[in-house]
Amino acid sequence: MDAFITHTGVGVPLRRSNVDTDQIIPAEYLKRVARTGFEDGLFAAWRSDPSFVLNQPAYAAGSVLVAGPDFGTGSSREHAVWALMDYGFRVVISSRFADIFRGNSGKGGLLTAVCAQDDVELLWKVLENEPGAQVSVDLVARTASAGDIVAPFHVDDYTRWRLLEGLDDIGLTLRHEPEIAAFETTRPSHRPTTAAVAGIND
């Protein structure tokens, strides 16, 4: 997972609340075996609407999504985070996120920045008045800036630390690799392995 310190990219105003994970990526995309390439499923139902914000050329290269409250509700599918990141999003700004989605985002390296709804409205205005305007997100200072607006955001200390360090769950655990190796030396010898047993089921 890449470290996240600052990010500047095109801001996308998504004036919708309660964007659930079925809207972020519908269930039909869950049958796939790949871990990447979910960008085509992102907001699949809305993408067929020419007026949808991501279908407007100025916003198409967006990487900072500014959404209404209660983003990421519903099914726990991790594919929702994958779809956003595969599309190119690094940050979602909202006044409120669903718990599971926020947890999945932290694991995947997507920053969920919680801004006051008033600030979300101000950001929307900037991004709508000047399509293609950039948003600068500073995880050290915890601010999101666009035009004249500097909006402070909240992210919990643990998630922030992990993002700044670029540590995913596995990376975090692997920092304790010596302890895992030490534990392995203490396992009883009678515990089985899955290796074929000679003469029995090899």
Binding site: M1, V33, A34, R35, T36, D168, I170, E179, F183, R187
Partner: peptide
Amino acid sequence: DLLYIDLHLLHEVTSPQAFEGLRLSGR
């Protein structure tokens, strides 16, 4: 707590993206 796992069983439905995750991060 970090818990050690003695036996990990796999089948075809829930493992593909896990393996691909390993590949993507060189693990």
